[in-house]
């Protein structure tokens, strides 16, 4: 575990909760005794603008993910996902909330139309971030943290709403691309 080096770029637009993902994964790192660096946008970018957050797990120096380095991208919106593909390493995986028209890219891609599922009432759109994280973990084989570790972090971050968040997380886990 100590040798792990894993870089995740999470993106969406303001209000979708990408910053929450950084908090969640950094808690997992703390409990695993792994170093972790994260960086996020505040201020203007939270008014519906593009929000890009970087999470680097393991021994890194800067929290900023460089071009062509990320192992995984979690895109909460298709356009925002396309905007940051240059940060993925050639083998880096894409987990994206997008419809069938999402273009074919030269990366392993796990696509889920979460907006559609939310409209059908499968889950509450407010918890899109946790839903997509669940989906990511069930499909990305090299994800650095286990389901149980994430569950623990979800509980720690806010015990009050944890039951609701855990339910959405498990719904995300059970989705197929």
């Amino acid at each position: 575990m100590s040798k792990i080096k894993y870089q995740i770029v999470a993106t969406g637009f303001g209000g979708q909760g990408t910053v929450f993902l950084v908090k969640l994964l950094s808690i997992c790192a703390l409990h695993n005794g792994v170093e972790c660096l994260g960086t996020e946008n505040h201020g203007m970018s939270q008014r519906g603008g593009t929000v890009v957050t970087d999470i680097k797990i393991g021994d890194f120096y800067t929290p900023v993910i460089s071009l062509a380095q990320a192992n995984l991208m979690i895109g909460l919106h298709p356009e925002e996902a396309l905007r940051v593909v240059q940060y993925l390493s050639p083998s880096g995986a894409i987990v994206v909330n997008a419809g069938k028209d999402f273009p074919k890219l030269n990366h392993p891609t796990y696509r889920l139309d979460a907006f559609h599922l939310a409209e059908k009432g499968v889950f509450n759109i407010q918890a899109l971030n946790i839903f997509m994280l669940g989906f990511a973990i069930s499909h990305v084989s090299d994800f650095p943290f286990s389901v149980r570790e994430i569950e623990g972090a979800i509980y720690e971050i806010n015990p009050k709403i944890a039951p609701m968040n855990l339910e959405v997380f498990h719904l995300g886990l059970s989705q197929s691309p």
């Binding site: 637009f13 203007m44 593009t50 396309l82 905007r83 593909v85 890219l105």
Partner: peptide, 12 residues
């Protein structure tokens, strides 16, 4: 190597 297609700007 950014995506070559068009992505609409998302302004705050």
């Amino acid at each position: 190597l950014p995506y070559q297609g068009e992505i609409p700007d998302r302004v705050p």
